[in-house]
């Protein structure tokens, strides 16, 4: 397999006419689908600049974790951070690479993007199946002046396990005691109501096809599909729109320095403009590297992404990590990723 990959890369490099000394190197990664669009773009630009090819399979966070544990890839990617204890158990380390927002979207006649206001409790009760009609007085109370139809709410969720679901249910668990008791926070849960779509695109398709539907997708999908996102009430009590600025607001207050193993979830963060369902996507690597030169290539790529990939990320409506967090992360690389002799891989 390796040989085939190698041959394929050599061929690709040759046809691209890359003359760089590193031409032909391949980095293999697998995992989360949530950051796939931006990793893909980064990989393409990075390949043009350096000739190094990144082969990222967006097979889902769980798959990414499994593959890195099986050591079939150079790095894994997950939307849900691993708990510090689990990291230690497998000798892994993780860092947040990119942030983004998860956005509830609706399909209601006459209601455009960012018109419908939902409180955290109402969103949770819709997903619990306790609010079943769009003109329910609890929804109407927040939406004076908006004519809500007397229509069944069709709840749409992910059918496959997903980091997006993990972030979404993490938020619902934080804002609703009943959700925490009955359903909980995981990559797939026992949904009390609704139908399941496969992938963000599956949820987006169901919401667009079914009148009266509500679903949740990552921001880029909502934008690209011109879906009607909603205004959510955040922890400070303001109704905020899902925008890059508001994702950044949620990320700004995050105290990464005190998060052991970068275990940090950005949902329901304080701040007047904070979008409440914001999440980070994580990269997983082994602390001890058998092939330090490969590991160095991986880190070089992510370093490039931190320092030269922000524009690309923002163009896809992701939120790049703040400069001071990047410094922290690169210090962590130096301190924890070692070759077999204990020398740091990242210098």
């Amino acid at each position: 397999m390796k040989r085939i990959l190698f041959a394929a890369t050599m061929f690709a490099a040759a046809t691209l006419g890359a003359t760089n000394a590193l031409a032909g190197a391949v980095i293999n990664g697998a995992g989360a689908t949530f950051p796939y669009p931006v990793y893909g773009k980064w990989a393409w630009s990075y390949n043009k600049e350096t000739g190094v090819r990144l082969n990222y399979q967006s097979i889902g966070s769980g798959g990414g974790i499994k593959q890195i544990k099986a050591r079939t890839v150079d790095f894994g990617a997950s939307d849900a951070p691993l708990k510090p204890a689990e990291l230690d158990k497998f000798g892994l380390m993780q860092w947040p690479q990119i942030m983004g927002g998860v956005v509830p979207v609706v399909h209601l006649a006459g209601i455009k993007a960012n018109q419908l206001k939902l409180s955290a409790e109402n969103l949770a009760d819709i997903y619990l199946g306790k609010i079943t009609k769009w003109d329910d007085p609890r929804i109407a109370a927040d939406n004076k002046g908006l004519s809500l139809p007397h229509q069944d709410i069709t709840v749409v969720h992910r059918a496959d396990g997903s980091g997006t679901t993990w972030i979404f249910t993490n938020y619902l668990t934080k804002v609703s005691g009943e959700w925490a008791d009955k359903v909980g926070n995981a990559k797939s849960v026992a949904w009390p109501v609704g139908l399941g779509g496969k992938g963000n695109e599956g949820v987006a398709a169901f919401v667009r096809k079914v009148d009266g539907a509500i679903g949740y997708v990552e921001y880029a999908y909502a934008l690209q599909n011109h879906m009607a996102s909603v205004l959510l009430k955040n922890r400070d009590g303001n109704f905020v729109a899902p925008t890059s600025a508001n994702f950044q607001a949620a990320a700004a207050g995050a105290d990464w320095a005190h998060a052991k193993g970068y275990y940090m979830v950005l949902t329901n963060q304080p701040g007047a403009n904070s979008w409440p369902i914001t999440g980070a996507s994580f990269i997983l690597m082994y602390k001890t590297q058998q092939h330090p030169e490969r590991a160095r290539e991986v880190l070089k790529f992510f370093d490039w992404a931190f320092h030269h990939g922000q524009k690309l990320a923002e163009s896809l409506d992701y939120v790049p990590m703040p400069e001071k967090v990047v410094k922290m992360i690169e210090n962590t690389w130096r301190a924890t990723i070692k070759d077999a002799n204990g020398n740091p891989v990242w210098k």
């Binding site: 097979i59 889902g60 966070s61 769980g62 798959g63 974790i65 499994k66 059918a159 496959d160 396990g161 997903s162 990559k187 797939s188 609704g194 139908l195 399941g196 496969k198």
Partner: peptide, 17 residues
């Protein structure tokens, strides 16, 4: 909506942790 064995497998296999 319902579910079938085959679609359960297709949907959930990758993320069954």
């Amino acid at each position: 909506p319902g579910n079938s064995i085959a679609s359960t497998l297709a949907n959930e296999f990758t993320e069954a942790d």
